[in-house]
Write a protein that binds this DNA or RNA. Structure first.
Lengths: 330, 330
DNA sequence: AAACAGGTTGAAACCGATTTCAGGTGGAGG
DNA sequence: CCTCCACCTGAAATCGGTTTCAACCTGTTT
């Protein structure tokens, strides 16, 4: 690899001048500029980003910490983040934490040591902040609030509204006996969705019934079994997310229930598979792409010294597909 | 952020000594060593990885280039790579290329400028190598051969065997009219699987019938429609991968066909969703995790100057689930 | 013709690590 | 007691960029 000094020598100028030509940071005599450009072209010179980042204290790297990249929701977020980062000439350093707090901490440290420009974090680790050493890198929290971490921005969807809409929809589809497989109450997403469910039940005078369920498929399987034995006359299930909804569907299928004839089913998130599945799932749409894009933009803006909005609540909407059935007579 | 000079000053030693303590690269007087460790602990000093990487010409970063992270197959590969990289104290820089050659080239360049230790690439770009500038970073190619690129290792599954097994299985399940939705013939995966299908057809004297189909869901929908109109008495479909199999299933469902009663269906890859789907898909298992792990190990070994194996063919196997039905009378 | 403003330029310092190399110390051996 | 060797140690060079700063050149003003 040819260095800036080598280019300078060949072009008969100083490294400083080469730097100025490359970065356009100052005027350079057109003749010298041309000489430099010729040599750059001949040698295929590309500045070493490490050296640059070392001096500038910015590596144009954004760290992305997700609990599980195989989880479609995070996969889709990661994709949106990567895309937007690329557009802005940033690169993505990915950490798949598997709920391993130690791994998250180590990755945060690495990002710090790499002069990263920002960290977008989605995590399950509640007490991450307390265990974390000093960190220069600005944080953006996506989807799940972390106590004690002073992030530059927080981005989430309106889970409460989503919870309300989902429950109300089941109601309008004729369900009398709605059971909520509520998500982890340590997350605001879990809390707010459940609160939405609760409030609708209260407003319509419905019986409140629920079970706790983590956000993953295997848990969904287990809890759905439990649900059927505990609430035998259930006719509507509000799953905490799409993966759990799919798990519930499979359990219902194996027990001989029909969806939506016997039992109706609502998911949450609108991951891509919720539409690919057979039947296609009615669910609450979180604007996943927009959220990921914004997370990245916030970091870019912050790096540029632009003002940013700290709290960002994204609107949600409902899509009715094949697992619920809107009764015509409302 | 405190620097090594700061630590050295506080501990009353030189930066060289601090470096030696941190890295254990030379003996240091136990007393001084202790002083250094105390200061390191007090200040929370962590060496700047950029400075280190600049000097060492190795940033402990592995680039991962995938065509589409939302595609479960690549998502699962990425996960395995990240996991193994973490175990070896490497980090992952992710590029989701969306089949955009320019984006791939730019990311390769960036990785080069970052003194990355290796690039694991899965791409659709055929003529990537010819457009690529000089690159110091060693490549490992996963899943899809790239002509003209001199990689340090190539890793793929035994697609030919998989193609044979899948076809033979459909045959044993009583299919008389197997249609192959073959994958892109520019990839060895597409070629080899199709070759397996062809050879089994020849050996059993079967009629050969196929359509071309890209590896994605939307294509699967389109081609499956075409398949039904072109081959009305099909009773077995060999999809080029699991996503296409799912698409085919949905088309069959919408046309009123029953799977596996009317038409049997084989996928390929064994992505997680092939088992989560309803019905669960019979498919060919690629050892995704093992392949990703090996790709990473190869790079680590190469960085350590250890010998590595260039060509790596992974065995595949067949899992019979609900979309095929093994007839008892063989 | 001298003074001054404005624009280019390169030497050198800097970012924060690692490693080389030469000098200093202490103990063993003659 | 002197020599030699082994072992620590720190000054300085290095990695490859960027930026500061002072010097220089050109052309204009008085």
């Amino acid at each position: 690899m040819v260095s800036i000094r080598e280019v300078a020598k060949r072009a008969g100028v100083s490294p400083a001048t080469v730097s100025r030509v490359i970065n356009g940071t100052a005027n350079v005599d057109p003749i010298k500029r041309e000489q430099v450009l010729v040599v750059v072209d001949e040698t295929g010179y590309k500045p070493n980003e490490l050296a640059r980042a070392l001096f500038k204290k910015s590596s144009k790297i954004i760290g992305v910490i997700v609990p599980n990249i195989e989880n479609a929701f995070f996969g889709e977020l990661a994709r949106a983040i990567e895309e937007e980062a690329y557009q802005n000439n940033y690169r993505i350093l990915l950490c798949n934490s598997q709920n391993n707090t130690e791994k998250e901490l180590l990755n945060i440290q690495t990002l710090n040591q790499l002069n990263a420009d920002g960290i977008i974090i989605m995590t399950n680790s509640e007490n991450l902040a307390s265990q974390m050493g000093p960190c220069q890198v600005p944080f953006v929290i996506l989807d799940r609030k972390i106590e004690g971490l002073d992030e530059i921005a927080f981005i989430e969807a309106d889970h409460y509204k989503g919870g309300r809409m989902a429950t109300e929809h089941l109601l309008q589809c004729g369900c009398k006996n709605i059971v909520c497989m509520r998500g982890p109450q340590k997350f605001s997403s879990g809390q707010q969705r459940f609160l939405g469910y609760l409030d609708i039940c209260k407003e319509y005078g419905l019986k409140v019934q629920w079970l706790d369920c983590d956000y993953d498929y295997e848990e969904g399987l287990r809890v759905a079994e439990e649900l059927l034995s505990e609430f035998p006359d259930v006719d509507g299930i509000l799953a905490c997310n799409d993966m759990v909804a799919i798990a519930a569907y499979k359990v219902l299928l194996s027990k001989g229930f029909h969806v939506p004839e016997d039992i109706q089913l609502m998911g949450f998130d609108n991951i891509r598979f919720s539409k690919l599945f057979a039947p296609e799932f009615s669910t609450i749409i979180q604007p996943i792409k927009e959220m990921g894009t914004l997370a990245t933009q916030v970091i870019v803006q912050y790096a540029n010294g632009e003002p940013i909005q700290k709290e960002n609540l994204f609107d949600v909407s409902l899509v009715e597909r094949q697992t619920t059935r809107h009764t015509k007579e409302k």
